[in-house]
């Protein structure tokens, strides 16, 4: 058997794969009809008792839809068949798990739900990451024809496209940033990570200075060109783990993962200079600047709205202070000062 992982670097890029999954913002969301419908069709067409849409997180497999296995919502990756499925481009087909040394002693085979046969197809993103699997499971040994496996591949492509279409709806198409709603979801997740694991992060809110003047003088097409250029520049400067959101009009948010207040201040300065250097082709060329509010996460931030409001206060201070500068939110500054050296 040819190991496709050698010639397919994305199959080995676990960090990139998990980030690709995170882009969908789907983990731990409630059950939803579109995914249940696809799993239901797989169950009916393949005539199996269990059909699952499984997403493979870094430490677990999580079920977006699970038909025929009770209320199970996740398992560890150690016992997960789908963890094996995502390591290749082609479907994983196991006619009898008891005869397969990889699965013969698996607790899902030796105990409930007593899996005997399994066929799983990777759910692949348009940029080539296998984020999960669509699988048909039976409690008796099964032989599937190539045509039946082709049917499962077709359903898997449709399930992957459902995921992708949701992601499209979360992107602001002018700037390529997340929409306010998508960004807020990410901020809430950062707050949850801080509460659970004390993982630091920082929030920047930036507003383009005198942007109304650009629209009034050169028209909305020129305004959009400025927004596009700012979005492209910021996206290029961010790490894969950071999130850029368009909060509305000419206001953006940047969530910096694993960042301290000092990191955030440095980043804000880098972004400020990068925006200042943008020149939009025009006669004369259009130039813009931006003001930044900075806030590091702390116990006082219970919701995304609270945290954004605090970063906004710092942004207004930057505006009042003369624009094209950044200001730190008061509570972040106090937290920083009160820390032992």
């Amino acid at each position: 058997m040819i190991d496709t992982r050698l010639s397919d670097p994305k199959l080995n890029d676990e960090q990139g794969r998990v980030l690709a999954l995170q882009r969908y913002q789907i983990l731990d969301t409630p059950r939803e009809a579109p995914f249940d419908r696809i799993a239901g069709l797989v169950k009916a067409v393949m005539q199996v008792p269990i059909a699952i849409i499984s997403l493979i997180d870094s430490e677990r497999q999580w079920f977006k839809s699970c038909i025929g296995m009770g209320d199970t919502t996740e398992t560890t990756r150690e016992v997960s068949f789908c963890t094996h499925t995502i390591q290749a481009r082609e479907p994983l087909y196991i006619p009898d798990a008891r005869l397969d040394p990889r699965f013969a002693t698996n607790p899902l085979v030796t105990g409930a739900p007593f899996i005997r046969s399994y066929v799983g197809v990777p759910l692949c993103t348009p940029d080539g990451y296998n984020v999960g699997s669509l699988c048909a499971i039976d409690t008796i040994p099964r032989e599937y024809t190539p045509s039946q496996i082709e049917v499962l591949k077709s359903f898997a492509a449709l399930a992957a496209e459902e995921l992708e279409l949701r992601r499209v709806a979360q992107i602001d198409f002018v700037t390529g940033a997340a929409t306010r709603r998508g960004f807020t979801v990410e901020v809430d997740k950062a707050i949850a990570r801080y509460g659970r694991y004390a993982r630091s992060s920082a929030l920047l809110v930036l507003d383009l200075d005198h942007f109304k003047k650009v629209n009034d003088t050169w028209g909305h097409a020129a305004g959009d060109a400025v927004l596009r250029a700012v979005g492209a520049k910021l996206n290029a400067l961010l790490r894969a783990t950071d999130v850029l959101g368009r909060l509305g009009g000419e206001e953006f948010g940047i969530l910096l993962a694993e960042a301290t207040l000092r990191d955030a201040s440095r980043s804000a300065e880098r972004f400020r200079k990068a925006i200042e250097a943008i020149e939009i082709e025009n006669d004369p060329p259009i130039k813009v600047t931006a003001s930044f509010g900075i806030s590091a996460i702390g116990p006082e931030h219970a919701t995304a709205d609270q945290w954004l409001a605090e970063a906004d206060l710092a942004l207004y201070a930057a505006k009042r202070g003369g624009r094209n500068r950044s200001c730190i939110a008061p509570s972040s500054a106090e937290t920083q000062l009160s820390r032992p050296a």
């Binding site: 045509s147 082709e150 049917v151 077709s154 359903f155 492509a157 449709l158 992708e164």
Partner: peptide, 16 residues
């Protein structure tokens, strides 16, 4: 992609 996936689904269901 959706249009292509749909056509592929119909073909595969017919073949099966």
């Amino acid at each position: 992609r959706h249009r292509e996936n749909l056509a592929r689904l119909v073909r595969s269901l017919q073949s099966a």
